[in-house]
Design a protein around this nucleic acid. Structure first.
Lengths: 246, 246
DNA sequence: CCCTTTATAGTCAACATGACTCTTAAGGAG
DNA sequence: CTCCTTAAGAGTCATGTTGACTATAAAGGG
């Protein structure tokens, strides 16, 4: 059990089998609050407790494919929509006793969803709901830890990547983009400075032609933008009292 | 096969078992070049090909514990030494056919080693060697991909964390620290500017009392420093033509 | 003793950022 | 219609950080 990937004569059945699952931390920004997609467990252990959506990786699929499949099943989004979402591997949780029933190694993913499509409780999902982040008691298994790690990660990524646009619909205003930063970071940002920074970063956003108007709210109508081609921010957009938990 | 972590009546043996392994991308800086710890495979598949060190996760250990155990076995370092090394989970590779023999999900870790302790070829390690990064033909399995991801990751982390000190011995000079950045990033940095930045970042390094001397090289003797208590760099130390691969 | 090498101290201008002010263009209340 | 509130968007100014350089100090080698 060491250097070689499989000692000669290795017999798979000689090892206790591992189950491999995916867990999903799916975030969205709704009504100026960060929301997370949660499901209520139907069976023991943790029956009646809220948990992150997820499920087993099938024998012939990769963890990422499993994650997209589960995401589509839980949210009721079409496969096309899910294919376009931002999905990123977070990390893998492998403590021997994280699942009391058996040895389960779970690959966690983080997904960002623009508009809050109400999860169809239909299909077979026990009960899936968008819950405001941090308002719920302890989640099942080690899902509180996973959720905290996911939140840390996206907060850090907002600093040096253009990820924030993944929370926004195809066309959005600078104000909506700023809302994403403020909601995830839990701070208020100076509007003029934020605007200046975003527009000064090449490829972050692209102005949309046509009537620079927006329906809805009060105040002066805002110009619309689309996500640009840039992936990284140089230099980064640091949070005010920036602490990276790493 | 969906929302619930285990459907009622779930029988583990009904699923094809997954093997779970760890792979290690262990880096060090030696002679101004980035080196990686590699082992030569003894059996098929890929017999005779170089690969990342790694091995199976045992039934009762976490992936991180497995990684530290394998690292100690491959390098011959004491358990104490290994316990102090920087070890970080990189990501998990789960493509169904990444190992031709069976379904293997591998959790990859990155480790940084200060001084190049020559791996004892002893014990049972087939043959472990420090190889200059990028000089070797294709590695076994998807290890080229893992190595590239690991390199990207540490390059990015140097920008916003104090990670570089993990490559250095307990006491080091600013010049040695700069070497780490130059070697990993593959660029030359301006010495005065680098020095100013490092010293201006609170908690990055702490000056060592006593004779500000260094044996060895030519040139004016340099002052010695130790790693500080800070973990993150604010603001970050961006690479010159900074591209984050994310 | 001169030359090369590296550390370390400064200087200066360009740039980025934080804190503000001001104007414009909506919607709502009276 | 008019005033008030709200938010977008244009600018200003002082400060802080960075990149590009110059200069001095303190070793080792020939």
């Amino acid at each position: 059990m060491n250097r070689s990937r499989a000692p000669e004569g290795y017999d798979p059945s000689a090892f206790e089998p591992f189950a491999v699952t995916v867990d999903l931390a799916v975030f969205t920004v709704r009504e100026e609050r960060l929301h997370v997609l949660l499901v209520e467990r139907g069976q023991e252990p943790y029956a009646g407790t809220w948990a992150l959506p997820g499920g087993f990786v099938l024998p012939r699929e990769s963890a990422e494919r499993a994650a997209r499949r589960e995401l589509a099943e839980e949210t009721g989004l079409s496969a096309d929509t899910v294919a376009g979402l931002h999905l990123e591997q977070l990390r893998t949780y492998s403590e021997p006793d994280r699942d009391p029933r058996m040895r389960v190694v779970s690959v966690a993913y983080t997904a960002l969803v623009p508009d809050p499509p109400e999860p169809r409780g239909g299909g077979d999902a026990a009960r899936a709901r968008w819950m405001p982040h941090g308002t719920l008691g302890p989640l099942a298994f080690d899902h509180d830890r996973i959720l905290a790690d996911a939140h840390d990660r996206i907060g850090a990524k907002l600093e040096y990547s253009c990820l924030a646009t993944a929370f926004c619909p195809p066309e959005f205003t600078i104000g909506e983009l700023r809302q994403v930063y403020e909601t995830v970071w839990g701070v208020e940002l100076d509007r003029p400075n934020f605007r200046r920074k975003v527009l000064a970063t090449p490829g972050f956003v692209r102005a949309v032609e046509g009537p620079p108007r927006l329906t809805g709210g009060r105040g002066k109508p805002a110009a619309l933008y689309r996500a640009g081609e840039a992936k990284a921010l140089h230099p980064p957009l640091l949070r005010p009292e920036g602490r990276s938990t790493s």
